[in-house]
Design a protein around this nucleic acid. Structure first.
Length: 445
RNA sequence: GCCGCGUUGGUCAAGGGGUUAAGACGCCUCCCUUUCACGGAGGAGUCACGGGUUCGAUUCCCGUACGUGGUACCA
């Protein structure tokens, strides 16, 4: 990004940012977050992305990740990109991609660039970008930061068994054991070439040096350090020639000029791998700012909210109904049980974020105006369906009936009641809406 | 096991060295209402624990516990 002003968090405090000279990256001034972001908006294009895998329904946590990305982008007049991460052919599910875009449409969170909307950085589907990744993997090998590995899955399993037997704390493929494995680090150059020419399947792994500290600043969490002794040599390019997430996310974020990378907290442990890849491939100065969002947890204790919890506890976890194409099983969505998109967005926005006031009901425009990543919580939040319903009730009361009349009409028609007098129907809905929490309640009333 | 990240009522949360520690959902009581709901007025309920630092800690530091995530040729 030549001739752009870089704004980096001033470590270790995330309250202040340093603003760097465009040409030589010398420190210009130190600014508070709000000022820095204002300047960022002035000089650098904000570009964020949501990168789902088309493997099934769109979960609450996924929608919230989209929302926070979207709000941030819109607040700073930036671009919101949807990139399909379909590098795992074995997990690909027919129809999931279309479904994801339908959900985003219903939620009112349209992308500026995507497989659907086009854009200057196409293609937006990683499987179609397959050929772009290999050169970067090869470049890492050339610079000594990656290597070819020929180990079969069985050999890796055997290695882990052996480590387990010695009581080792780590079962990872890392600097401790890589010189005992079948890779280009241990093999002679000729041997490696011969194996590759023979068509032996191989992967490319990152070479993580021992005894280093990788640190970065997370907008939500502040400074985070990792000891590279605990980081393994992750596979970057798989035997089928596809990149893993680790390589693809770094290469695409660079190529698509992503300025801020926001994703779920489950990615935090692999962040050092991504930081290292940025360092080796594109330079830390070009790296996006990071924020790892807190998780949405089950209401009753243990673990991340999953699709099975919805069925078990009697509430949806997907934005819209999702039918598994192989089992035909339908997992319920918020839309179908009678949520308004305004309410769905509102309740998600205040799960893990608030503006510091007592306000709880926000329109999309208010969210865009008031959202700030700094005020997002560090800790995960348990999902409360009762409170979710309260938001819907509030929005049904607030919105004019014309907003959702059509959907209520369909509910009546599905029950075999035809609506002939539209004006009368509207008046009735207007009278009973105070009593309704979910859209089907209009029928019950 | 190891590594990372967390922890304010049952839940979402504000606050952040001295406060009667906001507010919302839920719960309970009462009022309104022919009934239910809606609405209104009240109420119970909280700084995980142990050490420091300090005149003073829920707030800062260190431990512990607990929770959660990761530990794949999945994302």
């Amino acid at each position: 990004m030549p001739n752009t002003i870089r704004i980096k968090p001033l470590q270790p405090s995330r309250r202040f940012y340093k603003i760097l000279h465009p040409a030589n990256y010398e420190l210009l001034i130190v600014a508070r977050v709000a000022d820095a972001l204002y300047l960022y908006k002035m000089f650098n294009k904000v570009r964020v992305r949501f990168a789902p895998s088309p493997t099934g329904g769109l979960h609450l946590g996924g929608v919230r990740t989209v929302l926070f990305n979207y709000l941030f982008a819109k607040k700073y007049s930036g671009d919101f990109i949807v990139r399909i991460e379909d590098t795992d052919q074995t997990r690909f599910v027919e129809g999931a991609e279309t479904y994801i875009f339908e959900c985003l449409k219903w939620c009112g969170l349209p992308a500026d660039e995507s497989v659907l909307h086009g854009g200057n950085y196409a293609p937006y589907r990683q499987s179609e970008r397959k050929e772009m990744y290999r050169q970067y993997a090869e470049q890492l090998i050339a610079t000594g930061n990656a290597y070819y590995a020929f180990d079969t899955p069985e050999e890796i399993d055997a290695m882990r068994e052996k480590l387990k037997a010695t009581g080792s704390n780590s079962l990872q493929y890392d600097h401790h054991i890589r010189m005992q494995m079948n890779n280009s680090l241990r093999l002679l150059p000729d041997e490696t070439t011969a194996l590759i020419n023979k068509g032996t399947p191989y992967v490319i792994r990152i070479k993580v040096n021992a005894n280093e500290v990788v640190s970065f600043t997370d907008i939500i969490r502040g400074n985070i350090d990792f000891d590279t002794n605990n980081v393994d040599d992750k596979v970057l390019l798989k035997a089928d020639g596809m990149p893993t997430y680790h390589l693809a996310v770094v290469v695409d974020d660079y190529l698509m000029k992503i300025s801020h990378a926001f994703r779920g907290e489950e990615w935090l442990p692999s962040a050092p791998v991504h930081i290292l890849l940025w360092k080796y491939l594109f330079g830390l100065n070009n790296m996006p700012e990071w924020a790892h969002l807190p998780l949405i947890l089950k209401p009753d204790g243990n673990g991340k909210l999953s699709k099975r919890d919805g069925d078990r506890l009697g509430f949806p976890v997907y934005a819209m109904d999702w039918q598994d194409p192989s089992t035909q099983y339908i997992t319920k969505g918020f839309k179908e049980i009678g949520f308004l998109p305004e309410a769905f967005i509102n309740l998600l926005a205040v799960l893990g974020w608030n503006d510091g006031t007592e306000q709880e009901i926000f329109t999309m425009d208010e969210l865009i105006e008031k959202f700030s990543m700094e005020k997002v919580h560090k800790g995960g939040a348990k999902f409360d369906f009762e409170k979710a319903k309260w938001f819907n009730h509030e929005w049904i009361k607030r919105l004019p009936v014309t907003n959702y009349k059509q959907r209520v009409k369909e509910i009546f028609e599905n029950k075999g009641i035809a609506i002939t007098d539209d004006g009368y129907f509207t008046k009735v809905l207007e009278l009973v809406k105070e009593r309704c929490t979910l859209l089907p309640d209009f029928y019950t009333q």
